[in-house]
Structures are given as C-alpha cells and as structure tokens.
C-alpha cells in the first residue's frame, strides 16, 4: 500500500492536476452534452440523482447504470475524474464489506452492499455527466436560473479563473521549499514513510506564504469587482435576467429528454 502511495505521489504533479481539471471543465465544449441547455441537464440530474434511491431492483439499477455510463462517455471526461470515481467507489464498498465480514456477515451481506454501490455509482456518474459535461459558465447560469445565490454562481466561474494562478503560486512556493529544504532519504520502508510525512508537511507549510500572497491578490480582485459593478449587479434583478437571456432550449434538449424517457421505459419493460 505504501509503495503504491509513494509511486502515485511521485507521478502526481500539480501541472498534471491543473491540466486535467481545466480539460475537464473546458476541453469538451464540442460534445453533445455541452450543447444541451443547463436547465434541462439540471432537471435531468435531479431525476437521475434521486431515482436510484427509490429502487431496489438490481436489473433496473443496472439498466440505469448503463445509461449514465453512456452519457458519461459522451462528455469526454478527463481520465483523472474517472479514476477518482472508480477509486472512491471501490474503496468505500470494499472497506464496508471487509468490516461487515469481520462482524460475522456472510455472502448475504454482499448483495445489499453491491446494490448500494450501484446506486452510488449511478448518482455519481449522473453528476459527472452534468458537472463535467457543462462548461462552468453555463452551469453557473443554469444554477442562477434555479434561484441559486449570485455569489455562489459567480464563485464557480471565478474559481476556474483563479485556479491557474493559485496552482502556479502554490507550485512555486512548494518548489522553494523543495529546493531549499532537504528531503529525507526515501530508501526503504521507513524512509518512504518519512518521505511521505515530509511531503505533507511542506504542503502544509506552503500555505503560510500562499495565504499571504493570495491575500495581496484578492484585495485587487475585490476592488476591481467593485469597480466593475459586481455588487451593483447582484442587487439588480433586471441584470440577472439579462445574464440569463443567453440560455435557450432547442431540439437537442428535446432529443435528450426523449432518449432518456425511452431508455427508462425500456428498463421498466424488461423488469
């Protein structure tokens, strides 16, 4: 386990993470899912996020699972996101399974846990479809339409704007630590462990300068937001409507709805 963690750690670079996240958000503008109106997708998500919890029939759940797996495929999700999804599902259920056996569970325990896993998987994939498939700005507009607070909707777009800056600052500070500090010898079992602790420690230490640097930046950002009328707009309903005017449902939305309904119909027919 520890060896695996260390290898992962070495391969994982901030550059890679940044690229994956941005690719996930903006790299798939040309997919079918991206063309669907965010409101349609959000309603669809509410449906698919809630529906599995209503059902206990494995076949039905499997049918839903296949459907959301296909939509996820359509969104061209970044590999990292898929990896995290699989990793999360496996560890969570695996852990529960092992512990329940420990407490005298038998094969019968496996069934309910598998079904629960399937449910979690369906809702997660539905969420990946919607939140990775939509570009953040459209997602923000969609949420805004449903009455989500402006500050949250703005924060989504802003988060993507500031992410590269944050990453760069953080990366450089981390490098300062790495280059000027002295990393412990990572040979052997104990060395690897020490090395891991060291890495976590310098990540934490890096937040001190990062907080100061970002504080300096956020002052300018907020002053600029004030000048550029951000708060003025938040207090004004007409402007919110102007922002939402770019949304519009079209044929893609209708097709998407029809396909979803037919698939569901099919699943229920089989059951």
């Amino acid at each position: 386990m520890k060896v695996v963690t260390n290898q992962l750690w070495d391969k994982f670079s901030i550059e890679f993470l940044r690229n994956q996240v941005l690719k996930n958000a903006y790299g798939n503008d040309d997919t079918v899912i991206a063309k669907i109106d965010p409101r349609t997708l959000l309603i669809w998500y509410v449906f698919f996020g809630v529906l599995p919890w209503f059902m206990h029939n494995p076949t039905l759940l499997l049918g839903l699972f296949i459907f959301v797996a296909v939509t996820t495929r359509l969104t061209k999700v970044a590999p990292l996101v898929l990896f995290l999804f699989c990793f999360g599902i496996l560890t969570q259920s695996g852990y529960l399974l092992i512990v329940s056996w420990f407490f005298g569970g038998d094969l019968a325990t496996l069934g309910p846990i598998l079904i629960m896993t399937l449910k979690v998987a369906i809702t997660s994939l539905a969420s990946i479809t919607v939140f990775s498939g939509l570009n953040p700005d459209r997602l923000a507009s969609g949420l805004l339409w449903f009455g989500c607070p402006d500050q949250f909707a703005f924060s989504i777009a802003f988060a993507y704007r500031i992410l590269p800056i944050l990453m760069e600052e953080f990366q450089n500070i981390l490098l300062s630590h790495r280059l000027r500090g002295k990393s412990p010898n990572s040979i052997g079992w104990r060395g690897k462990f020490r090395y891991l602790i060291y890495q976590v420690k310098i990540i934490m230490f890096s937040f001190l300068p990062l907080m100061l640097n970002i504080a300096k930046r956020s002052r300018t950002t907020v002053e600029a937001l004030e000048l550029r009328g951000y708060r003025y707009a938040n207090q004004n309903k007409i402007i919110k409507k102007m922002k939402l005017r770019q949304l519009g449902m079209g044929t893609v939305d209708v097709y998407f709805a029809i396909v979803s309904i037919i698939w569901l119909w099919g699943c229920f027919l089989i059951v």
């Binding site: 903006y26 953040p136 700005d137 777009a157 802003f158 993507y160 704007r161 800056i165 930046r217 956020s218 300018t220 950002t221 002053e223 600029a224 937001l225 000048l227 550029r228 009328g229 951000y230 003025y232 707009a233 004004n236 007409i238 402007i239 102007m242 922002k243």
Partner: peptide, 29 residues
C-alpha cells in the same frame, strides 16, 4: 482604471466574457 497587478483584475475565464463583464453588470443591453 487598470491596476498595476492587472492579472488580478480579470475575473472571468474567457476573453469575451471578461471584456463584457462590466457592461453586463451595469446593465447595458
């Protein structure tokens, strides 16, 4: 007004959006 640390003044992820940000906020049709 354009800041010295202008980088922090840009708040939207795309160019066209950021250029129009103020106009949108002040309600220009």
């Amino acid at each position: 007004y354009v800041y010295q640390d202008f980088e922090n003044q840009i708040v939207c992820p795309t160019v066209s959006e950021d250029a129009a940000f103020s106009c949108l906020n002040y309600g220009h049709e």
